[in-house]
């Protein structure tokens, strides 16, 4: 009996002496995020939408540029959503399958949002962290450049770019990417100013760690919390901007489409009793934006410095 207990105690001691993995701040944040129901559900819905946009095409009967001549011009009578005709979401006025077009639009809109936000995050974080960390004159010059770029009206430049250089997805990326990192760099710079006087930065400097390593190893990881929150809020902002541009008729080019372009077409034909042309893209649009905002909110709560 006593021997058995001794063994047990020895086992326990062995277990204790194993180097257990510590709980990093990220792990803590993930646990807090999972406790936020709205954010977790939003994350699942968003993942469902994303996977739908990749799996969906395999179930489509019509491709997004194929015209159903039966439905052309008589969408209100023939092109309604139905399973028999293969137009699950109905057709548009030209007889094109809305199911395939919504999938195509979802892919384009999400890609624009996510890629645009990543460009903004990478450029903005490095720019802001460098500016804040170096300080002094460098900081002044770098931030004045941001001021100047910020004072240019964003939509105006974007519209001009698209008009002058022609409508293309590439141009849209350049236009959005060029200007959306500005806010990011401001936020990051402010946070860096806070961080750079912390003692662990000083400790690294005394040790002789190079400036570049200090920025990448010590400053940026500590900024990621705020960056993650801002990025999730930036994605819907960029999707909105793209949709607005597309709504004006300047965004993606036919036969490609995006949520904004689809909503524009749907809104234009609403008086012909083809309300599905508006409602399907709009539903995807609204639900996705809600999800992004809820996730951003959840992340902010999870990474809130007050809880640390």
């Amino acid at each position: 009996m006593i021997v058995a207990n001794k063994n047990k105690i020895k086992d326990m001691a062995d277990n204790l002496s194993e180097s257990g993995a510590g709980r990093s701040l990220w792990k803590d944040a993930r646990i807090r995020f999972m406790q936020n129901k709205a954010a977790t559900i939003s994350l699942f819905i968003l993942l469902a939408i994303v996977s739908f946009s990749f799996i969906g095409p395999y179930f489509a009967v019509w491709s997004y540029e194929q015209i159903d001549w039966n439905a052309m011009g008589s969408a209100a009578r023939v092109g309604m959503p139905s399973i028999e005709s293969g137009h699950f979401f109905g057709t548009d006025d030209l007889g094109r399958d809305l199911y395939s077009r919504v999938i195509q639009g979802t892919q384009i809109s999400l890609m624009v949002g996510v890629l645009g936000a990543s460009v903004a995050v990478i450029v903005g974080t490095l720019y802001g962290a460098t500016s804040g960390y170096l300080g002094g004159k460098t900081d002044q010059i770098m931030m004045r450049i941001v001021d100047i770029l910020m004072s240019i009206p964003y939509m105006f430049v974007l519209i001009l770019l698209l008009v002058v250089f022609g409508r293309s997805i590439g141009m849209l990326f350049i236009g959005i990417g060029l200007l959306s990192w500005l806010d990011m760099s401001r936020i990051v710079r402010g946070q860096t100013l806070n961080l750079k006087n912390m003692e662990f930065i000083e400790a690294a400097k005394v040790t002789g760690v190079s400036d570049f390593k200090i920025i990448t190893r010590h400053i940026v990881p500590n900024l990621l919390g705020i960056v993650a929150v801002y990025a999730t809020l930036l994605v819907p902002g960029i999707i909105l901007a793209e949709s607005f541009i597309s709504f004006l008729g300047l965004g993606v080019q036919e036969p490609s489409t995006s949520w904004g372009a689809l909503i524009k077409e749907g809104a234009g034909t609403i008086s012909y009793e083809t309300e599905w042309q508006l409602l399907f893209p709009l539903a995807f649009f609204v639900v996705s934006l809600f999800c992004f905002y809820f996730i951003g909110d959840g992340l902010r709560d999870a990474l809130d410095p007050k809880d640390r």
Binding site: E199, F200, A203
Partner: peptide
């Protein structure tokens, strides 16, 4: 080498 006043602040939390 140097040792600092605030023990927690002198260690990178990440």
């Amino acid at each position: 080498q140097m040792i600092f006043q605030d023990p927690l602040a002198s260690l990178n939390p990440r």
